[in-house]
Each structure stands twice: as C-alpha cells, then as structure tokens.
Simulated scan of single mutants.
Amino acid sequence: MSNSSGAGPIEQLDPVQAEDYRPDREGWAWYLVVFLRVAAGVAMLKGLYHWAAVCGIGAGPNEVFDAQSLPWQTATVFFAVIDLVAAVGLWLAAPWGAVVWLTGSVTMIVVQIFFPLIYGVHWIVVVGLALMIVAYLFFAIMAAREQGA
C-alpha cells in the first residue's frame, strides 16, 4: 500500500458524524451509537449515585457529605457533575460527550489506583471502566474505517 501524502492509516480516518446515524443502518457506526447510548446510561447512573452521596440520600449520621474528608467531597462533586454532563453528550453522540466521558473515566481510574484513601480501591470499577474505554476505541476506529471505505 503506497501513500504519497505520508500520512499513516490513522490520520486518513475521518471522524464518525452523529448525523450519519440511521436506525435502519447496520454497521460499525450503528454499533458505535448503540455503545454510546449504553455508556450514557452507565454515566447517568454513576452521576446520580454521586449526587445521592452529595445530598445524603441513604447515608447514615456519620456518612453525610459534611462528615467526609475534603478530598472525598471534592472528588464526589467532580464526578457528580462530569458524569451527568458526559451522559448527555454520549446520548447525543456528540464528539464532546466522548471527550468528557473519557476524562471522567480516566480520572476515576486514577483516583481508584493512585488515591485509595478517597474511595478505596475497587478493582471492578477500574477494570469495568478500562474495558469500556477499550470498547469505545474499538467501535470508534471500526466506524471511522467503515465510513472512509
């Protein structure tokens, strides 16, 4: 395969456009949009979970928001906001939605691994988010290749 422009195969891929989604369409772009909608649902549940912690829903007297450490409060408010914003962007299949979601997911992985005093280390969260990131990259690359063909 000869490429006179010098660009590698990744640089030749165009981004998948949200308006390319049609319910009757079969292919990688359709799978990508379905994945984004599922990820939006997960992000919404995570955001609502963090907002429940902020509001003290289901918390005992010693577990209310004000009784927690400042790093816990800061991280909880951050994830409460970023997860819900990401959910909207993912549902709309907007490019910024994936960026916000990736930012929140990578940040949660970093908090879980490198700052265990905030939430503790929950490997199911780390592995689950890592698998979702890998799945997103797979679907996005396959959809971009399909669109370029």
Score class of each variant (00 low, 15 high):
Cys55Leu: 15
Ala140Arg: 13
Ser2Asn: 10
Glu19Pro: 01
Ala52Cys: 07
Leu102Val: 06
Asp24Arg: 12
Ala130Leu: 11
Ile57Arg: 10
Gly148Trp: 07
Tyr31Ser: 15
Val16Ser: 04
Ala52Leu: 11
Val121Arg: 12
Arg37Cys: 10
Val85Asp: 00
Ser69Pro: 10
His122Glu: 13
Val99Met: 00
Gly97Glu: 01
Met44Trp: 09
Asp14Ala: 11
Trp72His: 09
Leu32Ala: 09
Ala140Gly: 06
Asp14Ser: 14
Met132Glu: 09
Ala67Ser: 15
Gln147Met: 13
Trp51Thr: 14
Val85Pro: 01
Pro71Ser: 07
Val81Thr: 03
Glu63Cys: 07
Ala59Arg: 15
Ala75Lys: 06
Ile109Glu: 02
Lys46His: 14
Asn3Gly: 07
Gly89Gln: 01
Leu90Ala: 02
Ala7Cys: 05
Leu92Ile: 05
Arg145Tyr: 08
Leu90Asn: 03
Val125Arg: 11
Gly148Ser: 13
Leu92His: 02
Leu70His: 05
Ala87Glu: 00
Met1Leu: 08
Leu13Ser: 03
Ser69Met: 09
Met142Phe: 12
Leu84Arg: 01
Ala52Asp: 14
Phe65His: 12
Asp24Pro: 01
Leu84His: 02
Ala135Pro: 06
Pro23Lys: 08
His122Thr: 12
Phe65Thr: 03
Glu146Ile: 09
Leu45Tyr: 14
Ile82Ala: 01
Ala40Trp: 05
Ala75Leu: 05
Trp123Gln: 06
Phe114Gln: 09
Val99Ile: 03
Val88Lys: 01
Val85Phe: 01
Met108Lys: 11
Ala53Asn: 10
Glu146Gln: 12
Phe138Gly: 10
Gly56Ile: 15
Lys46Trp: 13
Gln68Asn: 14
Ala144Thr: 07
Leu90Phe: 01
Ala59Asn: 11
Cys55Lys: 12
Ala86Ile: 00
Leu90Ile: 06
Gly89Ile: 00
Val42Met: 10
Val127Leu: 13
Gly120Asp: 07
Asp83Ala: 06
Arg22Pro: 04
Ala7Arg: 12
Trp101Gln: 03
Gly128Leu: 08
Trp91Lys: 01
Leu70Val: 14
Phe114Asn: 05
Asp14Phe: 02
Trp96Leu: 00
Leu137Tyr: 03
Leu48Glu: 08
Val88Thr: 00
Ile57Tyr: 07
Trp72Thr: 08
Phe65Ala: 08
Ala94Lys: 03
Arg145Asn: 12
Gln73Glu: 11
Val54Leu: 11
Ile10Thr: 08
Gly8Thr: 05
Leu129Thr: 12
